[in-house]
């Protein structure tokens, strides 16, 4: 059992490594020069050059990965270049609200979901089963951005 646990845990390391490559890679994939965007409407060449240097944008990709991964390992997620605040601080600002929302949502979702699931299993092929299925499929099939749009004027 312990052996199995250790084995499972050992696979986490390479997985996390690939996840880090993926996350870093996705940022690099995004087109456009971040310095040019950050430099604002005027795009003053000296500002662009300064940002390039500050963000290590001229260094080779592996070096930039090490800068980034090193920072992440030390708990430094970098600094928002837009408002010059540490990213970690920005995340912490939002975390309580996110947790609260997620928690309440999970409680509601689980209580409705489990009840509906049990009811539809016990009374299989009843109207209740039918309704639960329709509701579930409706939820799966509605593009949420569309639902969002349709609800806006009704705020």
């Amino acid at each position: 059992m312990l052996n199995y646990l250790v084995q499972r845990l050992a696979t986490i390391v390479p997985t996390l490594f690939f996840v880090s490559i993926l996350i870093f890679g996705l940022q690099q994939l995004l087109p456009g020069d971040p310095a040019v965007i950050l430099a604002g409407e005027d795009r003053d060449p000296t500002v662009v050059a300064h940002l390039h240097q500050k963000l290590h944008l001229d260094e080779p990709l592996p070096v930039r990965y090490l800068y980034w991964a090193g920072g992440v390992l030390r708990g430094d997620l970098g600094e928002s270049q837009r408002i010059q605040k540490p990213v970690l601080e920005l995340i912490m600002e939002k975390l309580p609200v996110t947790l609260e929302l997620a928690l309440i949502a999970i409680v509601i979702a689980l209580s409705i979901g489990i009840t509906a699931g049990i009811v539809s299993a016990v009374y299989k092929d009843s109207a209740w089963d039918y309704a639960a299925n329709v509701f579930a499929l409706w939820g799966l099939s509605t593009p949420n951005f569309w639902l969002g749009i349709m609800l806006i004027p009704r705020i």
Partner: peptide
Amino acid sequence: DSLISRITDAMLACPFLILAIALAAFLG
């Protein structure tokens, strides 16, 4: 198998739509 599985796990850890958006932005 290990290599493929780890990379697959890593990709599954990233939300499907986020991955698609990043790739689409990259491809144009």
